[in-house]
Design a protein around this nucleic acid. Structure first.
Lengths: 343, 343
DNA sequence: GATTAGCACTCAGACAGGGTGAGTGCTAAC
DNA sequence: GTTAGCACTCACCCTGTCTGAGTGCTAATC
């Protein structure tokens, strides 16, 4: 796609896209011709533009307006034309400074990150928190609250904590609970939480366990403890997007709003990113989500060691400063990774 | 305010308000005159309307438009004119059914509640979760995670749980931690968490403690555990509000959006409601919040026994179906109270 | 004295027509 | 292959007109 373009055609396409990114207005042949670095007449540019339109890179909203890049054009742009710059030094400083008040819990860090992504990119920041089930179990504990109420606590390697209040059938003594915790920790510690459930079921078949009522009760209790919890997502800076001129009409604005209210759709999209590593870009229709026309998503995974934890990124108009935003997302992801590594 | 109004004037004002609530259009004298139940000529109505305008109950957007109720009019309406109906039986059923899948944790219940308020009222639902610090401590526990890392767990009477990862200076043994937990539970259990901190500081002066290093260490640890956490707020159904015709222009819409993004402002407002009991209504400017023109808030507190836990309610346009929404908020609050009582 | 009918007046909103300017496609000259 | 020139298109703006809903005022009526 687009390999057939001559060098000059590429230059012109690039010029159009970059112009459109800053003006948000259809760009005409004169504007391109005048552009510093190109010494062509408007007429020539027009010929090229006609070709580019035929190839699907441009459209015009109406006859006598300029041309507007299509999603396909942006795709070609980010793949072939865009030289992704290094991140601005000042911005790097600014990002880093946000994390200086460090050592807080993981949820707070991620929330702060979404805020940060939004304010540095001037678009919308999103962060998908690690699925609890994809983390590694560090510790499991039962606390007796009184009566049959038990608080089950799971602590993940990354510092995330999940609690669950259980109403048990039997009245365990505090020491029973301690012994149960010890046994389960022995068995489950260090394993991915996703595997814990099957491991529990396996262990239940174990002969030794079948004859030890305490152990089998422990397993039954632990089974109640593990529940799939919904994905947690942080979004910040939605108003930044509403300020973009392309959404300055009621219909489009509502559309965007709807897109953001359907958080599970966004979660699905980000979930898809988890498998791939590094920066990923979805332009307009490439998101395959409804209500997302005119919006692009730039994401990157953040990791701990070689485990992918979650995804963070920026949502902006397709007409977005890719060259600036991509390094921001990239840098932030790496920083967050490092931050969570330490824990 | 408004006592000087004759019976007929009240009727006319009521007619105008109710008409405006359903049509969202300035209402003219003809419309009022035609209204079932009033047998007056438009001219007469006009005279009355002029009086009402002078008194500050009505305004006209321009000379040849009808009249629109002011905030003052709505206030008078809900105070003196409105007969708050019983809640619809079907709606009551619907609300109750939402909670049938009971017994989940408090956060989930409150989140569900905001969704419910939104979908039943067709406006926006908000729920302010109980401040952790305003609850009563049921249990406190330290879990050794390895090295100097300790997970401190606070469990409140209402089932809310707060965790905190602490990096302690000293390397406590597991049994040390158990003894510390026991001692602290003895001391602090059953007390409001807001008082716990001062209680800890007092206890530190205690002679017995001064000579027992373990106890004083326990106190120091527990002091680190108690941190004021930000208020948690659930909001759902923002798009419902955008569908209201009065926000069908870009400026107003952005305004509303901004109002919702400033969650702490909303938290402040709801916080103010906590001290009062029962249903409260803020009309437009009465919220004293920026970006809130044209919006009203109806809240009620939910309680457990005689402790006020939090606040829930509905935000809608000032032109809101008060008669319907008030009982919904009231009923929901009572139901949530009962639900949390059981725990 | 309160109510109403009648009338002149106001004003937003819809609609049509004319001018403007940015931009296009085509053709012929370079 | 490139460019100049030209006729053409079309959104947008401005203007003026018309319409209809609604008003305030006044004088007649109950």
């Amino acid at each position: 796609m687009g390999e057939g373009l001559s060098e000059r055609n590429k230059q012109i396409l690039e010029a159009i896209i970059e112009d459109y990114i800053v003006t948000a207005e259809p760009v005409g042949s004169r504007a391109v011709a005048r552009r510093h670095g190109l010494t062509l007449s408007p007429a020539t540019v027009r010929n090229v533009m006609a070709d580019l339109e035929e190839m699907g890179f441009l459209t015009s909203p109406h006859t006598s307006a300029g041309r507007v890049p299509t999603d396909q054009a942006y795709r070609f742009y980010v793949d072939s034309l865009l030289a992704v710059g290094r991140i601005d030094k000042a911005e790097r400083e600014r990002i880093r400074k946000c994390y200086s008040g460090a050592g807080r819990d993981i949820g707070a860090v991620l929330h702060e990150t979404s805020r940060l992504l939004s304010s540095v990119s001037h678009y919308m920041g999103i962060v998908l928190a690690p699925r609890f089930s994809s983390t590694i179990l560090r510790h499991m504990e039962f606390v007796k609250l009184g009566g049959r109420r038990i608080l089950a606590i799971l602590v993940a390697q990354n510092g995330a904590v999940q609690n669950r209040l259980i109403e048990s059938e039997e009245d365990f003594s505090a020491t029973d609970l301690v012994r149960m915790s010890n046994y389960l920790n022995e068995l489950l510690q260090g394993h991915p939480i996703a595997e814990v459930r099957t491991r529990i079921l396996e262990e239940m078949q174990n002969e030794k366990v079948l004859y030890d009522t305490l152990l089998s009760r422990a397993l039954r209790l632990s089974e109640q403890t593990i529940v799939e919890s919904g994905a947690e997502i942080f979004m910040e800076g939605q108003t930044n997007i509403l300020d973009q001129p392309e959404f300055a009409d009621v219909g489009r604005m509502k559309e965007v709003f709807r897109a953001f209210e359907e958080k599970n759709q966004l979660v699905d999209l980000l979930d898809r990113c988890i498998s791939a590593q590094g920066v990923q870009i979805f332009i307009g229709s490439e998101t395959h989500l409804s209500h997302m026309e005119g919006l692009s998503v730039i994401t990157s995974t953040y990791v701990s060691g070689k485990n992918t934890l979650g995804v963070l990124g920026v949502i902006g108009p397709t007409r977005m400063g890719y060259g600036k935003v991509i390094p921001i997302v990239d840098y932030t992801a790496k920083l967050v990774s490092r931050l969570l590594e330490d824990e």
